[in-house]
Design a protein around this nucleic acid. Sequence first.
DNA 1: CCAATTATGGACCAAGCGGTCCAGATAACT
DNA 2: AGTTATCTGGACCGCTTGGTCCATAATTGG
Lengths: 207, 207
Amino acid sequence: MRFMTKHTTASSCSSETRDRTPRPGPGRPRAFDEDQVLDAALQVFWTNGFEATSLDDLTSAMGLSRSSFYAAFGSKQGVLMAVLRNYSASALRQLDELTRLPREEAPMAMLEAISLPKEGPRGCMLVNCIAELAPHHAEVAEIGRTHLQRIEDLFAKALDPQDPERARDKARALSALAIGTLTLRKSGLPPDQIAHALAAARGIVAP
Amino acid sequence: MRFMTKHTTASSCSSETRDRTPRPGPGRPRAFDEDQVLDAALQVFWTNGFEATSLDDLTSAMGLSRSSFYAAFGSKQGVLMAVLRNYSASALRQLDELTRLPREEAPMAMLEAISLPKEGPRGCMLVNCIAELAPHHAEVAEIGRTHLQRIEDLFAKALDPQDPERARDKARALSALAIGTLTLRKSGLPPDQIAHALAAARGIVAP
DNA sequence: CCAATTATGGACCAAGCGGTCCAGATAACT
DNA sequence: AGTTATCTGGACCGCTTGGTCCATAATTGG
C-alpha cells in the first residue's frame, strides 16, 4: 500500500473517518458492537503490523463483511485511526491510575506497567505504528506524538506532583527507557532481565 | 507479502542467500559493486520499511535489472538479510571506537551517537526491522537480538573496562534508553530536547 | 576466433491487494 | 402494512505485487 489510491471518493482527505454513529431512526440498526469490533482490529494490527494486515485478515477477525466495514470506517487507514484513538485513551487511563500511588512507588510502577505487560512481547501498539508509519503518515505521527507527550506528562506528575515541570527531563528519560525496553523484549530478552535493567535505572528516579 | 510464496524453488529455506560471489573464470563479470548496491538497498529499506518497499523501488534504486537482482540475492528477504548484516557490522564498528574514550566520556558519547545521528529521524535500521518483522521472522529476530546484545556489551565495556560483567544491568538500561529516544525522535521530538533527557539520565552512568 | 559461461533487460505470470457496487434482507417509524 | 433507511454478503475490478524465464549481449580462457 502506498496511501492514496487513485479513486478515493473526493471529499476531505484526512481524519474524516466517516463513522457517523448513525442516530436512531428508520432503517436497520447495526448488528455489531463498535468497540468490540475495533478491539478485534486492534489485535490483528498489533500482531501483524499495518502493511502486513490484509483486508481479509481484518474483516474476518472483526466478523464484518467488506461493505459493513467500509460503511463504518471508510478505509483500512480509517479503522487504524479509530483503533489508535481507542488504544491511546485506554492505555493512558491505565497509566494515570498509577500516578496516584505514593511518590516513591509511582514512577517505578509505571515503568513496569509499560515495560512488562503480561500480554507478551508485542510492544506498544502506538510505538509500533510510529516505527512503521510515522515518517510517511502525518496523522499517525500526530497521534503518536501526543500519546508519547501524555506519557511523559504522567511521568512528570508521578515524579514531582507539586511542580511537574521541574521533572520534565527526567520524565522524558523515563519515557525513553520504557519504550526502549519494548524493543529489547521484542528481540527476545526475557522479562526478568528487563526488570533488572529497570532497577539499575533507579538513579533517574531519585531526586 | 506474507513470506513463502508458493513457488520458491525447493532447496533450503533459511539463510541461503545464494550470493556465491562468482569466482573469476569464463563468463561475463558483474557490472555492479556489491557493497554499493547493498547500500542503495539499505537506504530504501531504511526510509520505507520492508513491506512498503516494492521490488521496483529496490531494483531501480540499486540500478539492477530484476534478473541480476535475483541472481545475486535470491529474494527480497535475501537482500534484506545481506543489508542487515552489513549494517550491523558497520554500526558496531563505529560504536566500538567510542568505547576507547576515557571512561568518564565514553558512555555518554555512545548514547549521543545512537540517539542523535545527524542523518535525521530514521531511527536505527535494525531496530526498525525488529519492530516490523521480528515477531514473524526468526532470522531477522536473530540478527536483531545479537546486534542489541553487542551494543549492550559495548556499553558494559565503556562503563567498567575492568569487569564489564559488573555493569551488565546498567548497560542494559543505557541500551534501552538509547533505543527509546529513537522513537521519541521519530515521533517529532527535536534533538535538543533529547539531549536534555540524556543528560537527566546521567544517574545511570555514575558508579 | 571459438566455445563456454555468465550477466542483462524486459516481457510475462498468477495471486493478492484495497476498494466498489449492487441486489436483497432487515428492522424502525408512521 | 407500507415506507424508508440502513445493513449485509459476495461478486467484481483494476492494479500492484514478488517472482520467473528467455533471448541476447558481454567477457573470459583456450
